[in-house]
């Protein structure tokens, strides 16, 4: 079933169009990777999907019981002040905030759910630690646990592995892959790591001068991928 449908979507800031005529559909249980060069508008697309900004043109539809505020989100950069006092548990719990509506306090079940999500991320031993004293990888997991509290349906991840070492990167990918496989959570992930994108995803959305949307196999057969792969190799030299 289609969860998110984009028709002729144009993205940008004010009158400045960055991406035009975007068409794609995300079904529940999909693992969609969004790839493209720096500045091609990937984060902008994600912000639009989260209704943090308006699209310039076109339609964005949520269906299959997915409400716009039921999407979990892991931002590209979380700007947290250096001296912010917050324990890991407080942060993970805050993912449940919008679900509570006007109820002011978290219930026992909420806390149990938060703990469960922390277990999934293997951070339950960090429960009372201060967030700002954690390593980058640990912080990412805390934020992912928070995102899991906000949703059981779809997760949007903006470069979740940037800044992680190769070991942690692989662990992170496995965690996300498990969420997708075991819990049937739809994953939409922005990634510059084209090899891992091809390894785990079911669908690819390529944003750039040419826009491509299709299954992984279709992407591998298209000529965009060749250009992108050779380009990224060229860039690495």
């Amino acid at each position: 079933m289609a969860q998110i449908i984009c028709k002729n979507l144009s993205l940008g800031y004010d009158s400045n169009v960055i991406v035009k005529n975007l068409n794609f559909t995300v079904n529940s249980g999909d693992y969609l990777c969004i790839v493209g060069e720096n500045g091609s508008g990937k984060s902008t697309l994600m912000r639009t999907l989260l209704s943090l900004q308006k699209s310039l043109f076109g339609e964005l539809e949520f269906s299959d019981g997915l409400k716009p505020n039921e999407i979990g989100y892991l931002p590209q950069q979380t700007f947290v002040q250096r001296d912010f006092p917050a324990s890991v548990f407080e942060i993970v719990l805050s993912g449940l905030c919008s679900k509570k509506g006007f109820k002011p306090f978290y219930s026992k079940e909420d806390k149990a759910l938060a703990l469960k999500n922390m277990k999934k991320m293997e951070i339950e031993n960090l429960k009372n630690r201060c967030y700002r004293e954690l390593s980058g990888g640990q912080q990412q997991r805390v934020l992912l646990a928070r995102a899991l509290c906000a949703t059981s349906k779809a997760l949007l991840l903006d470069e979740p592995v940037s800044g992680l070492d190769p070991m942690l990167t692989n662990q992170m990918y496995e965690l996300i892959y498990n969420l997708n496989k075991k819990e049937k959570i739809t994953i939409i992930m922005i990634s510059h790591d084209i090899e891992s994108a091809l390894k785990y995803s079911t669908h690819i959305l390529h944003i750039g001068k040419e826009i491509f949307f299709g299954t992984k196999q279709e992407y591998l057969n298209s000529n965009i991928v060749d250009g992108f792969l050779s380009n990224s190799k060229g860039g690495a030299q």
Partner: peptide, 19 residues
């Protein structure tokens, strides 16, 4: 209190999840 924490810690996330 809980809403204020969420908005103070990460306003974008709070907004994105419908706070």
């Amino acid at each position: 209190y809980n809403k204020i924490f969420a908005v103070t810690f990460d306003e974008n996330f709070a907004k994105a999840t419908g706070v």
